[in-house]
Nucleic acid binder design. Structure first.
Length: 864
DNA sequence: GCAGATACT
DNA sequence: AAGCAGTATCTGC
C-alpha cells in the first residue's frame, strides 16, 4: 500500500508496523492489496493485534502532541532556532570529511541463500528460514508474495502456501559468514561486522596502497566450477584443502581455500562483465583483473565472495557509513552503488532520498516526520529549525547530520557494547516456580555470554511480556559489578518477585522473559564524551589524523584548549571553519592532494592555513586576523587583544547602528522580507521558509564570494567555473527549489543544474548586513558571514536586554529573561552549537513544560 | 538509574 | 489448531 496515505488509518498503520506495507517490497506474486488483506485476516482479533493497535494509538498520540507543540511555536523562537541550527550546520559542513572510502557489504537474503545453495530442491522455490512462529529471512521468490523477515511463518504460509520453511542452521551461517569475513579482512583488517551477513569496511588506506599494485596482484582466477550443491556445501563446510594451482603461483594468498572444482560453466558471474583484456591469452579464459578504483575493489570483493561461497552480496561505497549503508540497498540484490567522494554527489544522492531509507529512522520516526510533511532528506533539511524545537537535541542533531549527508567514518568495534541480554518466548507460563526457574536459566545463559566477552555489569534488567503482549522492564543497579549466573539471578529474582507479588493473587501470565545486564565497568571511562547520535552519525565530528585513525574532536578541543579559554573559542572556531571551507574548495580542484589531506594536519599549509592551524592548537599564539566587525586587519594580534578589539567594535556598532543612516532598498535586503512576515506573526512553515534563504546562503556559501553568487545568479558562467563555484552546493539548489515551492515570495528555480536566484539578496557588489542593515566594508563572504553571525547574536542579546522591539528583527523580544548578558558582549561572541550545553532542558514531543523561560532556546542557554 | 520506545536483522 | 522474535540502544524523565 502506498505509504503516503497510511497516516490516519489504523489498519494501514498496523500493516506498516508489521513490516509488510513498506514500499520496499516489489511483489509480483501477490499484489499489495491482497497481501494486506491476508495479513489482516490472519492477525485480526488476536491479542497481538490488539496490542499493536494500542501501540499505534500511542504513536498517534505522540504525533498529536507534537503537532500541538508545533502550533505554539512562535516565529521568534523559530527564528532563533534557525540561527542555532544553521550555526551547527555550518560547523558540520566545515568538518565534512570526504576522504574516506567506506563500504558496506550486505549478503543477499543470506540465510535463505545459504539454504538454497546447499539444497538444490529449494531453488526456484519460495523459501524462508525460520519457524512457523517466526521467520528470519525469505528468498526473493518468497518476497514476491509478501513473505518477509520478522513475519510469523503461519502468516507467510497463508500468503504463499507453497512456501518452504527451512529451520535455521546458525552454525552453518556462522561458518559461511566467517569465510566472507576472511575476505573482507584482506581489505580492512579493522572492518566492522554488523551481523553475520553485513559489514562495514574502511578501505581508504587499502586503496592508497593498491594504486601501485601490479596487475598480477589484482588478478583472480575464475573458478568456473558451478559445483553441485553438495559439493559446494562440502567446500564450504569442510574447507576444501586443494588449491588452485594457478592462483597459488601468481598470488599465493588468494583462494587459499577455494573449492578445487573446476567444472562446467558458471551461469552468470556478474563480475565477468568487468574482465579486462589480458595480454596472456592463456589466462584470458579464466582470470580476471580488477582495477584500482574503489568500485573495482568492491567488484573484486563481491567476486571473491561469490567464488568462495557461491553467494552474492550487494555493496555500497560512500564517504561514510550512513551513506554506504543506504547505497548497498540501492542495487540489491547482487549489485553495488557508489557515491563519489564529493559534496555535490553526496547532496545529489541525499536530495530525494526518503528518510525511511536512512538507518536509524524507523517506522515511528518516519511517521512523525511525515506528519510534519517530511518525506525526503531535503524536507528534513528544510524543516531543520522546526525539528530542533520539536525533537530532542540528539534527534535533531542526527536529523541534521542526515540531511547534510554526514555520517561516521569510524569503524566502531563491537567491543563498545553497552549491554548484553537474552530473552525467550514461550507458550504461556504463569506458575511462579516455573517463572523463577526460567529466569534462572536465562541468567546462567547470560552469564555464559558475559564470560565470553569478559564483561561484568552493575545493572540487571528483566523484561516481561504477558500474554497480551504488554512489555514491562524492571531494573536494578548494584554497587559492584556482577557477572556470574548466581549473582545475576539473585538480582533478577528479586525483580521478578516484586512483579509476581504485585499481581498476586492473579498469576503473571507471561509469554516472554528476558534478562539484560548493562553498566559495564569500562563504560565509566568515557563518561562525558558520550554522544548519543546514532552510531551511523557518531563520528560526524571526527577528524582523521594522518594515519587514518579517528580523533574525537571534542577530546581534541579539550586537550588543545585550556578550559578557561574555551569561552573564546567560538569566533575562532568559525574562522577556522571558513578557512576549512577554502581548503575544501582547494582540494576539490586538486584531486591529487585530496587523498593526503587530513583535516587535523594538512600536509601542505599555506601561510594562511598555518595561521589558522596555530590558532587551533594554541590559543596564546598571535595571529593575523581580520576583525569581523570593522573588517580591519588586526595584524599579529594575540587572542586576548583581538577579543578586546572585537568587544570594542561590537559595543561601538551597537551604538552606531542606526538603520536609517543606511540606505538599503527594501528589495535588496532579505531582512526586509523577514520583517514583513514577522510582523504578521504567522507561525506557519512558510514563515520559516521566508528567512531560511538568508541563513542558508550564509551557511552554505562559505568560501564563495558574493560576486560569485551574484554572477551565478546572472548566469553565463563557463561550466567549469560554475561547478566549482556553485553547483558543489546542491543543497543550496534544492533549498531554493523548495523555498520557491512553498513561498511565492521567492522566485527561485532550479533546473538541470541551473539555479536562478532572484531573491531579495543584494545583487550588487555591496554586502549589507541583514541584521544591522549596515553596508559592510568587505566583499569577502567569509568575513561577512562572521559579521552577520556576530550581529545576530548581538541582536538577540540587545533585544532581550532592552525588552523592546529590535529595529532589525522588528519583533518583540520573547519574554525570556536575560540573566547573563551584561552591556558588553562577552567573549562568547559566537555560540557554537558544538559546545556542550550541559544544563539544557531537554525537550520531548509530549513535554508539558515548554516554558519559554526555561526552554533550551532561551537566550541564556544560547549563550551558556 | 529506570521504564518504555524504537530500530535492526 | 493456534500462532507474531531477539538484541541493542535511545529517550525522557
Amino acid at each position: 500500500m502506498d505509504s503516503t496515505k497510511e497516516n490516519n488509518n489504523d489498519k494501514d498503520g498496523l500493516l506498516l508496523r508489521m513490516g509488510l506495507n513498506d514500499n520496499k517490497a516489489g511483489m509480483d506474486g501477490l499484489d499489495k492489496e491482497k497481501i494486506n488483506k491476508i495479513i489482516m485476516e490472519a492477525t485480526k482479533g488476536s491479542r497481538f493485534y490488539e496490542n499493536e493497535l494500542k501501540k499505534e494509538k500511542q504513536v498517534n498520540q505522540r504525533i498529536e502532541n507534537m503537532m500541538q507543540q508545533k502550533s505554539q511555536i512562535t516565529t521568534q523562537r523559530l527564528w532563533k532556532a534557525q540561527l542555532q541550527v544553521d550555526k551547527l550546520a555550518m560547523e558540520l559542513e566545515q568538518s565534512r570529511n570526504l576522504h574516506c572510502t567506506i563500504i558496506h557489504i550486505d549478503m543477499d537474503a543470506f540465510y535463505a541463500a545459504v539454504e538454497m545453495r546447499d539444497n538444490p530442491e529449494l531453488r526456484d522455490k519460495p523459501i524462508a528460514v525460520g519457524s512457523m512462529s517466526m521467520l528470519s529471512t525469505s528468498n526473493y521468490h518468497a518476497r514476491r508474495f509478501g513473505v518477509r523477515a520478522a513475519m510469523p511463518g503461519f502468516i507467510a504460509k497463508r500468503l504463499c502456501p507453497q512456501l518452504t520453511i527451512v529451520s535455521p542452521n546458525f552454525d552453518k551461517y556462522r561458518e559461511v559468514s566467517k569465510e566472507v569475513m576472511e575476505i573482507l579482512a584482506d581489505y580492512d583488517p579493522n572492518f566492522m561486522a554488523v551481523s553475520l551477513d553485513e559489514a562495514y569496511l574502511n578501505i581508504t588506506k587499502y586503496l592508497e596502497e593498491r594504486q601501485n599494485w601490479p596487475e598480477d596482484k589484482r588478478r583472480y582466477f575464475v573458478n568456473r566450477g558451478n559445483t553441485t550443491e553438495n559439493e559446494k556445501s562440502e567446500a564450504v563446510i569442510s574447507k576444501a584443502p586443494g588449491l588452485n594451482e594457478a592462483a597459488v603461483s601468481i598470488s599465493p594468498l588468494l583462494f587459499e581455500d577455494s573449492p578445487p572444482q573446476l567444472q562446467q560453466q558458471e551461469p552468470e558471474i556478474p563480475s565477468q562483465a568487468h574482465f579486462e583484456e589480458q595480454r596472456d591469452p592463456q589466462v584470458l579464459q579464466n582470470s580476471v583483473i580488477f582495477g584500482t578504483s574503489a568500485e573495482e575493489v568492491v567488484k573484486e570483493i563481491r567476486f571473491r565472495i561469490e567464488q568462495k561461497t557461491s553467494l552474492t552480496a550487494s555493496a555500497g561505497i560512500a564517504p561514510n557509513t550512513m551513506l554506504a549503508k543506504v547505497c548497498s540497498d540501492k542495487n540489491k540484490p547482487n549489485g553495488q552503488y557508489q557515491i563519489p567522494p564529493n559534496r555535490e554527489a553526496v547532496m545529489d544522492f541525499i536530495k530525494d532520498l526518503p528518510i525511511r531509507k536512512v538507518p536509524g529512522i524507523g517506522k515511528v520516526t518516519e511517521k512523525m516526520l511525515k506528519a510534519l510533511g517530511i518525506i525526503t532528506c531535503s524536507d528534513l533539511y528544510q524543516k531543520r529549525a522546526l525539528l530542533s524545537l520539536l525533537f530532542s537535541e540528539t534527534s535533531w542533531h542526527s536529523f541534521l547530520h542526515i540531511s547534510l549527508g554526514l555520517g561516521s567514518t569510524q569503524m566502531e568495534r563491537d567491543g563498545e557494547r553497552k549491554s548484553m541480554s537474552i530473552e525467550r518466548t514461550f507458550s504461556e507460563i504463569s506458575k511462579a516456580e516455573e517463572l523463577y526457574s526460567l529466569c534462572q536459566e536465562l541468567c546462567s545463559d547470560l552469564a555464559q555470554d558475559l564470560q565470553k566477552e569478559g564483561l561484568k555489569g552493575k545493572t540487571v534488567t528483566i523484561k516481561l511480556k504477558n500474554v497480551n503482549f504488554e512489555v514491562k522492564t524492571r531494573a536494578s543497579t548494584v554497587a559492584a559489578v556482577v557477572s556470574t549466573a548466581e549473582e545475576i539471578f539473585a538480582i533478577a529474582k528479586e525483580l521478578l518477585k516484586v512483579e509476581i507479588d504485585a499481581d498476586y493473587p492473579r498469576p503473571l501470565r507471561l509469554r516472554l522473559m528476558g534478562v539484560r545486564i548493562s553498566g559495564f565497568s569500562n563504560e565509566e571511562d568515557r563518561k562525558h564524551g558520550q554522544r548519543s547520535i546514532i552510531s551511523f552519525l557518531k563520528a560526524g565530528s571526527h577528524v582523521l589524523d594522518p594515519v587514518g585513525s579517528v580523533v574525537d574532536k571534542n577530546d581534541q578541543d579539550q586537550v588543545m584548549k585550556p578550559p578557561e579559554t574555551s569561552h573564546k573559542e567560538s569566533f575562532f572556531t568559525k574562522k577556522r571553519s571558513e578557512m576549512s571551507w577554502n581548503h575544501q574548495d582547494n582540494f576539490k580542484c586538486e584531486p591529487e592532494t585530496k587523498q593526503s589531506f587530513q583535516v587535523s594536519q594538512p600536509p601542505s599549509l599555506s601561510k594562511e592555513e598555518m595561521k589558522e592551524n596555530l590558532e587551533t592548537e594554541n590559543t596564546d599564539d598571535c595571529q593575523v586576523i581580520t576583525c569581523p566587525i570593522c573588517f580591519k586587519e588586526q595584524g599579529r594580534i594575540c587572542l586576548e587583544a583581538l577579543n578586546r578589539h572585537v568587544d570594542e567594535c561590537l559595543s561601538r556598532t551597537l551604538v552606531d547602528c542606526d538603520p536609517k543612516t543606511v540606505a538599503v532598498p527594501q528589495s535588496q535586503s532579505f531582512c526586509s522580507e523577514v520583517n514583513l512576515d514577522l510582523k504578521t506573526h504567522k507561525t506557519t512553515d512558510s514563515l520559516l521558509i521566508d528567512f531560511v534563504p538568508s541563513v542558508s546562503v550564509d551557511v552554505f556559501s562559505k568560501g564563495k564570494s558574493m560576486e560569485d553568487l551574484n554572477t551565478r545568479a546572472g548566469d553565463e558562467q563557463s561550466p567549469k567555473q560554475y561547478s566549482s563555484l556553485w553547483s558543489k552546493s546542491s543543497l543550496d539548489e534544492y533549498f531554493y527549489q523548495n523555498s520557491s515551492q512553498e513561498n511565492e515570495g521567492y522566485d527561485a528555480k532550479s533546473s538541470g543544474g541551473q539555479t536562478t536566484l532572484q531573491t531579495s539578496f543584494p545583487r550588487d557588489e555591496t554586502l549589507v548586513c541583514p541584521v544591522c542593515n549596515l553596508q559592510q566594508k568587505t566583499s569577502d563572504l567569509m568575513l561577512f558571514n562572521s559579521h552577520v553571525d556576530i550581529c545576530l547574536n548581538k541582536g538577540l542579546i540587545q533585544e532581550l536586554k532592552k525588552d523592546k522591539v529590535n529595529p532589525v528583527m522588528n519583533c518583540p523580544a520573547e519574554n525570556s529573561k536575560s540573566t547573563g548578558s551584561s552591556g558588553k558582549i562577552q567573549k562568547t561572541v559566537n555560540v557554537t552549537a558544538k559546545t556542550k550545553r550541559p544544563g539544557l532542558m531537554t525537550q520531548n514531543s509530549t513535554s508539558k513544560k515548554i516554558k519559554p523561560n526555561n526552554s533550551k532556546y532561551t537566550i541564556d542557554s544560547f549563550f551558556k
